[in-house]
Design a protein around this nucleic acid. Structure first.
Length: 257
DNA sequence: AATATGCACAACCGCCAAGGA
DNA sequence: GTCCTTGGCGGTTGTGCATAT
């Protein structure tokens, strides 16, 4: 079984794009706009997968892209956003006009990671390196891989995660050196109700996504929480970061321009 | 000068979710 | 409700260039 391929791979080019291919793609999108990526290659006379065209356009050919080095301000913003969102590169890119998720992802992996390490900060947790791995206080760390881990555990109730090479204990993912298992334990809901909150507008508490300006996010929990709290049905304590009932994560230090 | 190693980044792959039939 | 298609995302790989040995 398996998914059907997104395109006929036998007849598509791969690898670096040529100038001619770029020109064709640009010309086509200029005259027809961004439409169906699947049919675009054929219509544009390109021997490329639709996905490949989309990626090329979004990451390199779009006219509104800002090329060149990242500024110090952009660096700091990326770090802040990453500390809040984790590897949600598209969300981070959404806050940096002219930058793409791929660009930010690459930049993070090649520059910022090292920059943080030089500062003695664990890039995965944004905590001091000597602290990471020492305190396994799961109530105060943020989980980005918790969902997958839980899925793995369900698939492997004996507590082992299958890999290509061997079985490893599921708990091994909580490698203290990496400290990737970042969980957050949000404040009790009534606490957020009791305290004045700068993200409350008109008596309504904004969730993380709304406060970040993510419109119509499927993750938006503003209304859910309002309903839950009004009905007194606030039973969910298994919050995960982007699952995500974490509208009350401390993102207040984030300065958006 | 030749080779090894590291770095930067473009591109690909596989998975997932949304939406339509 | 189910299946299929499509777009989008994050992780990973491939490749060219720079630097070190």
């Amino acid at each position: 079984m398996g998914r059907s391929p997104c395109c006929e791979k036998a007849h598509t080019n791969k690898g670096a794009w040529t100038k001619e291919e770029d020109d064709r793609l640009i010309a086509y999108i200029r005259s027809h706009g961004e439409g169906c990526w699947r049919s675009l290659p054929k219509a544009a006379g390109l021997l490329r997968c639709g996905k490949s065209c989309r990626l090329r356009w979004i990451n390199y050919l779009r006219p509104d892209l800002k090329r060149g080095n990242f500024t110090e301000e952009e660096d700091e913003l990326i770090i802040k956003l990453h500390s809040l969102l984790g590897n949600k590169w598209s969300l981070i890119a959404g806050r940096l006009p002219g930058r793409t998720d791929n660009e930010i992802k690459n930049y993070w992996n090649t520059h910022i990671r090292r920059k943080l390490l030089n500062r003695g900060i664990d890039p995965a947790t944004h905590r001091p390196l000597n602290e990471a791995g020492v305190h396994q206080d799961v109530s105060s760390t943020i989980s980005f891989n918790g969902v997958k881990q839980e899925k793995d555990k369900m698939n492997n109730p004996n507590g082992f995660v299958e890999t290509d090479e061997k079985k490893i204990p599921a708990v091994e993912e909580r490698c203290p050196d990496l400290n990737l298992d970042l969980r957050i334990s949000p404040p009790l809901y009534h606490q957020t109700q009791q305290h004045a909150d700068p993200f409350k507008t008109g008596g309504k508490t904004l969730c993380l996504f709304c406060s970040l300006g993510v419109k119509n996010s499927k993750q938006c929990i503003c209304s859910i929480d309002t309903a839950a709290s009004s009905s007194g049905n606030n039973t969910n304590t298994a919050y995960d970061f982007l699952g995500l009932k974490t509208g009350f994560l401390d993102y207040r230090s984030l300065e958006m321009k």
